[in-house]
């Protein structure tokens, strides 16, 4: 089911939190709403599922205008950050709840819950209470409950935030698998770029209540529209220098700042560029260097482990000219 959000504005106490946002999600596509906290991504999600009123704009599920409908009649499935499982109900009853309130008949409920349990691999847990489940299992139950009604749209609000690192990896691929198996249109809200990039077809990067850029993960990383996008994506983050720091690089006249991704910078002889190694962080597979330029600005570099560089050492360094990102005074990409 195609989802269109047109000119969406949301205010709290008169202050706009999201203003004039347009978002279009193709049928079967999974899109991430990514951004720093307070950027309006969760507000947007809550507006789509009907928990927040849509102050201005329209929300279309396919040809259906659902802007004014209460949550109950929008037919969306939501996985909440804390899963919001009903603690006093068994896993079965949790998953069955959306069907039960629709007064579906018992056989249908049992069959449907069985299918869902199979889909998310929790067939053996149906009699337990949520409190008796691990975080990952709770997550699966929440997914099953969101999917049981055959929703038009699946909404995921920071679904992995409460899991430990190992489970997060596992659930990342599980959610993607389930979304692809069911072919649902899905929106994932997250502040974690890795999650967004690894799970979604496209990313909508938000800042200050607006979408800054919508693109596929690779495209967005390599071809950011402005300095915010460039600095938000990438870990370790991008470094910024001025054209004066790179005299040999023929920067365009309008260029005020140049972005250098750590993987495109490294020690290199004979470039005429020098710097002092300030800090070395060993990460096992790679080493991370902070290099202070003569101007005082710092750049960061990632190199395979075993370079032997030490803090205090002066190095010559170079860059991959094809990967440099230039920004003008308005921080817009040139």
């Amino acid at each position: 089911m195609q989802l269109d959000l047109i000119g969406f504005t949301k205010r709290f106490d008169g202050t706009p939190v999201v203003s004039g946002m347009d978002l279009s999600v193709a049928s079967g596509e999974m899109i991430a709403l990514l951004g720093p906290s307070g950027c309006g991504k969760s507000t947007t999600l809550f507006a789509i599922c009907g928990i927040h009123r849509i102050d201005e704009g329209r929300l279309m599920f396919g040809e259906r205008d659902v802007s004014g409908l209460p949550s109950q009649r929008r037919n969306v499935g939501v996985v909440f950050q804390n899963y919001a499982l009903y603690p006093h109900m068994s896993v079965f009853d949790n998953i069955a709840f959306p069907l039960k309130v629709q007064k579906a008949d018992k056989d249908q409920i049992r069959r449907r819950v069985g299918e869902m349990a199979e889909l998310v691999h929790i067939e053996t847990l149906l009699d337990r209470r949520p409190a008796q489940l691990s975080g990952g299992q709770q997550q699966r139950v929440a997914l099953a409950r969101a999917l049981v009604r055959n929703p038009d749209v699946l909404l995921l609000d920071e679904p992995l935030a409460n899991l430990d690192a190992k489970l997060r990896l596992e659930m990342r691929s599980e959610i993607r698998r389930i979304q692809q198996e069911t072919g649902l249109t899905a929106i994932l809200v997250t502040h974690d770029q890795v999650e967004a990039m690894s799970m979604c077809d496209r990313i909508a990067l938000m800042n200050n209540g607006r979408i800054v850029q919508i693109d596929g993960p690779t495209r967005m990383y390599r071809d950011p529209m402005d300095k915010f996008v460039a600095s938000f994506l990438g870990n370790p983050p991008i470094s910024f220098v001025t054209p004066e720091d790179l005299p040999c690089f023929g920067a365009p006249k309008a260029c005020a700042e140049i972005g250098l991704r750590p993987e495109h910078v490294g020690p290199q002889f004979g470039t005429g560029l020098t710097g002092e190694v300030r800090f070395v962080e060993t990460q096992g597979r790679e080493d991370l260097f902070d290099i202070a330029l003569p101007s005082g600005r710092m750049i960061r570099s990632v190199q395979p482990a075993g370079s032997g560089l030490r803090p205090g050492q002066t190095v010559d360094w170079g860059y991959d000219a094809a990967e440099l990102l230039c920004f003008d005074r308005q921080e817009v990409r040139l």
């Binding site: 009907g50 109950q72 499935g77 909440f80 919001a84 009903y86 006093h88 309130v101 629709q102 409950r145």
Partner: peptide, 27 residues
């Protein structure tokens, strides 16, 4: 009661009486 639990029940399609009956009262 966590707000998300009430939100969840609304999204799940519960009307007010069902929310009271199945979510609020048991807790």
């Amino acid at each position: 009661i966590p707000a998300s639990m009430l939100h969840a029940s609304e999204v799940d399609g519960a009307n007010r009486w069902q929310q009271v009956r199945y979510i609020i009262l048991p807790q």
